[in-house]
């Protein structure tokens, strides 16, 4: 049985205040982004390619500084050692081809100088969580695309992050594999006290996974609407085929279409 859904606390884990990002070539990627993410939430940033959702994720991770505005971590202790609390999953698995699955998963701990025994225990646990315990000594090239992505997720989980940032991690996978990984991700999310910010361009994926969807419009990237998905967890195949799911998907699609219309209006004005 799946564990019961965990309680969400009211205090935000992180808050974006008026975050804008202009690239060196003058492109305004993000304009005045304001949103909170509460601890324990599963938030999706839904938008078309090029709307700046990946840029927003990189700014949250501290990989790219905002041109204006700020990212705040109201929860105490988050500022002090931010990096130990963030896991990042890229669009590609981004594994080191020269290192075994185990070494890839253990990398964050090795970089932090965590003791060998603890590293082994935690990397094994993370691989076990994504169902790859038996593949620890295999090299990435011997794995399928879905399994590589699992390694990538295990690597992000190995530090037991408070916040997991995922940048269209399943976009390149076939549908069956993607459904499977969606389910596994929800399981991991529920079993740990991780908060997830998930970037996707798939309406169906965002509705299935999220407790809340932030719809983004492009040029410049901004939040155009917000949609709470109040269906209870755990969600499974029944939810995926339910009328409730279909209704949420319709609402999300409408919101996305509205966001695109906003793009066009903004484009016409420019």
């Amino acid at each position: 049985m799946l564990p019961a859904p965990k309680p969400q606390t009211a205090s935000p884990l992180l808050a974006l205040h008026g975050v804008s990002k202009a690239f060196l070539n003058g492109t305004l990627a993000l304009s005045n982004l304001n949103f909170d993410v509460r601890a324990g939430e599963f938030v999706s940033l839904l938008g078309l390619s090029g709307c700046g959702k990946s840029t927003a994720l990189r700014i949250i991770a501290g990989l790219s500084p905002p041109s204006a505005g700020s990212v705040e971590w109201p929860t105490r202790g988050m500022d002090a050692d931010q990096t130990s609390r963030i896991g990042f999953v890229f669009q590609e698995p981004t594994l080191m081809p020269w290192a075994s699955v185990f070494d890839n998963a253990a990398l964050p701990l090795v970089l932090k100088g965590v003791a060998g025994e603890t590293t082994v225990k935690r990397a094994d646990a993370a691989l076990d969580r994504v169902g790859l315990a038996k593949f620890a000594h295999v090299f990435p090239r011997e794995l399928s695309g879905g399994m590589r992505m699992r390694v990538s997720i295990a690597r992000a989980l190995v530090t037991e992050p408070q916040l997991l940032l995922m940048d269209e991690p399943f976009a390149a996978l076939d549908e069956i594999t993607r459904f499977k990984l969606n389910n596994d991700l929800l399981q991991v999310w529920q079993a740990t006290d991780t908060t997830v910010v998930f970037v996707t361009h798939s309406v169906f994926e965002s509705v299935y996974l999220s407790s809340r969807i932030l719809v983004m419009s492009a040029r410049p990237g901004r939040i155009s609407s917000e949609l709470a998905i109040e269906a209870p967890y755990p969600r499974d195949q029944n939810f995926r085929t339910s009328a409730e799911y279909a209704a949420y998907c319709r609402r999300a699609s409408t919101a996305l279409a509205q966001a695109m219309a906003d793009d066009k209006a903004a484009g016409d004005r420019a």
Binding site: R58, A61, G62, L63, T83, I86, F88, F90, E92, T94, M96, L107, P108, V110, L111, K112, T159
Partner: peptide, 22 residues
């Protein structure tokens, strides 16, 4: 790989670690 570089930055890798492991 740029993403791997980012990953090392995210986990606060030192210059020597970046050189040696990446």
């Amino acid at each position: 790989d740029r993403n791997l570089s980012d990953l090392f930055a995210l986990y606060g890798a030192s210059r020597r670690q970046v050189l040696w492991h990446l």
